[in-house]
Design a protein around this nucleic acid. Structure first.
Length: 578
RNA sequence: GCGGCCGUCGUCUAGUUUGGUUAGGACAUCAGCCUGCCACGCUGACGACCCGGGUUCGAAUCCCGGCGGCCGCACCA
């Protein structure tokens, strides 16, 4: 490990210039929490807005906002309460900790379905029974304990009602699905996103913005009809390539991803659903726009045992980082109908969708109607029981029995044809109900934020330069008087005000020499510098300086607002500003 | 959470071995001078021993605890 890698250099710069730092520093700091400074909060917000634009606005999807605290029920239903706690045992001799269930898997040849069913006490019992000792030192284990990695609280001060900090935003969408579906006028496919904080009480978060206990994510749940899984926008992406490491490659230890078109990936079933492939392409494009070259990105498939409890196929989008190598920035999971089904079962609320058949299907419906005036006298006290039994019978079976033997026996009762009326009715089935399936792209905003900084970090002639994409730069324009005398500062302040009034984020700086001010601006990634010099006083022109190339062009002050708007929306390049 | 190493101005660091002046430097920041386009120069200012306890006449330095960092183990759904 190098002593001064990019993470360290960027962290130092970030602290100094106000991008991010560890929270609660005055109390010694708490790991797993960071504070975004003045520049950082703006940069992150801009990344967030770009994500919004890319995945929500342009696709016509919905965004909602839900609370961070969730009642226990929700996360019990979703399976998180179970999945987010691990049974641990500690070796009495060497104090090393192990997953109790993993020990049984590894040393006792049990399988996962067996270990999942075991309570803490049973786990202990199994470990003792099978004579498992500490694999490191051979010592005995103490009592197993549960480690819950969700933040737990009670809702209401005197209440017993357990609540958890949400470990993902997604559940907010599933629990509100019914109403959103109505807002969408019951149309599928339907995409819903949440951008917000999530909490995970990580055992040992150590990597700055890469692993936090409180972090920002975007969960996008895309609901579709599993019988109509075709992506309506596939044409737009099908010839684009993805760098994939699919499951079999990973198992073989292959490091170099294959490059396949979306079309191929789908036809070879490397990606399970079209929509998932579509979102993967979008994610690749998005990271490219944040400044990460394609060869520093890849998608790696998760193995069965690595996937979250709700996922049947998952790819992680990874970006190569200087310090940690490949790091996940987004996850793409096929959650099927898992979540809606869980919440339907647990809440009892129907969240199925209805779809019409293209042609109504004609069906003959057979029902049994008990004739109580006949059943009553025949069965006396058992009448109500018989009526009940009749309602559970298959009418067709009853009919066959009558035809064959003239009666039907249920339990000990002999039903005769005169006891019931069998009605045949032709009904048109107009459609059917189903639970939508879900593909989910999920982004870690804090990681995107760090990745953007790391890929923007450059040095030029021994100076630091953040080549942030211009639409993400927290400060857009620096305004400088060449000298802080001779009326130049006054004129520069007028230019500053003009640009501020035109809606730009501008910084005025007259401290130190001009070169130093350029250097300061470069270090925080300010794309453009406007310098007021002696010529400005004569003809009202200023120089405009490009952060990346340090080139300059000249233009009239009154042209600046329009030119800059065009520049920041990528309609003009720097050269065209003259 | 465990083990090893570590924690000094905003940043990077000297000093800790062997307790003893006003804790030194560089960069950055601010003020002034200088300066006609890329961290110029000069003068000055501001600014630190992670927190708590202990040992001692005296602790940045030694001891204990806490917090935090790095590396390894485990965890990362």
């Amino acid at each position: 490990m190098q002593s001064r890698d990019k993470f360290k250099i960027i962290s130092e710069m970030a602290r100094r210039r106000g991008f991010f730092w560890q929270s609660y520093e005055i109390y010694g700091g708490v790991s797993g929490f960071i504070t975004l400074g003045p520049l950082g909060s703006t940069l992150k917000r801009k990344i967030e807005d770009k994500l919004r634009d890319f995945f929500i606005r342009k696709l016509g999807l919905f965004e909602i906002e839900t609370s961070v605290i969730m009642p226990g029920k929700v996360l019990e239903a979703s399976g998180h309460v179970k999945a987010f706690q691990e049974p641990m045992v500690e070796c009495n001799k060497c104090t090393r900790k192990f997953r109790a269930d993993h020990l049984l898997l590894e040393f006792a040849g049990m399988n996962e379905t067996d270990t999942e069913k075991l309570s803490l006490q049973n786990l202990m019992g199994e470990i003792n029974k099978r004579g498992i000792h500490c694999p490191e030192c051979g010592g005995n284990f103490g009592e197993p304990k549960r480690f819950l990695t969700m933040f737990e609280t009670t809702i209401g001060p005197y209440s017993e009602a357990v609540g958890y900090g949400r470990p993902e935003a997604a559940q907010g969408i599933f629990v509100e699905y019914k109403r959103i579906y109505e807002c969408a006028r019951k149309k599928l496919p339907l995409g819903v996103a949440i951008i917000g904080h999530a909490l995970r009480n990580e055992i040992s978060p150590r990597q700055g913005p890469i692993r936090l206990r409180e972090f920002t994510i975007m969960d996008l749940e895309f609901f579709f009809d599993p019988e109509k899984p075709q992506c309506t926008m596939l044409k737009e992406v099908e010839n684009e390539t993805l760098r994939l490491l699919h499951g079999k490659m990973v198992l073989k230890g292959v490091e170099e991803p294959i490059e396949v078109t979306v079309k191929e990936a789908l036809s070879k079933r490397l990606i399970a659903t079209e929509w998932q492939a579509f979102f993967m392409v979008l994610s690749k494009r998005f990271l490219t726009e944040l400044g990460v070259p394609e060869n520093k990105q890849r998608f790696i498939e998760k193995q069965d045992w690595e996937r979250a409890h709700y996922s049947v196929q998952g790819y992680d989008q990874q970006v190569y980082l200087d310090r940690w190598g490949w790091v996940e920035v987004s996850g793409h999971n096929y959650r099927t109908d898992y979540d809606l089904k869980c919440h339907m079962e647990s809440s009892g609320v129907d969240m199925t969708a209805f779809k019409e058949h293209e042609q109504p299907i004609e069906k003959e419906e057979v029902t049994v109607k008990p004739i109580t005036s006949k059943i009553g006298p025949a069965f006396k006290d058992d009448t109500s029981k018989v009526v009940k039994l009749l309602s559970t019978l298959d009418p067709r079976e009853l009919e066959v029995s009558f035809k064959k033997q003239g009666f039907h026996i249920v339990e000990s009762f002999k039903i005769l044809p005169q006891h019931v009326k069998i009605v045949h009715k032709k009904v048109k089935e107009k459609g059917k109900r189903f639970i939508p399936h879900v593909v989910e792209p999920s982004f870690g905003l804090d990681r995107l934020f760090y990745v953007t900084l790391e890929y923007a970090y450059k040095t030029k002639e021994g100076r630091t330069l953040l080549s942030l994409p211009r639409d993400l730069a927290p400060v857009e324009i620096g305004v400088f008087p060449l000298m802080s005398k001779d009326g130049l500062p006054e004129k520069a302040r007028q230019v500053y005000q003009l640009l501020i009034n035109s809606g730009f984020k501008v910084e005025y700086d007259e401290s130190g020499a001009i070169g130093r001010r350029y250097a300061r601006a470069d270090e925080v990634g300010t794309p453009l510098g406007v310098t007021v010099d002696y010529k400005t006083l004569e003809d009202d022109t200023v120089t405009i300086r490009d952060r990346n190339t340090w080139r300059q062009v000249r233009n009239k002050v009154h042209n600046l607002p329009e030119l800059f708007h065009a520049y920041f929306s990528y309609k003009k390049e720097f050269k065209e500003l003259k």
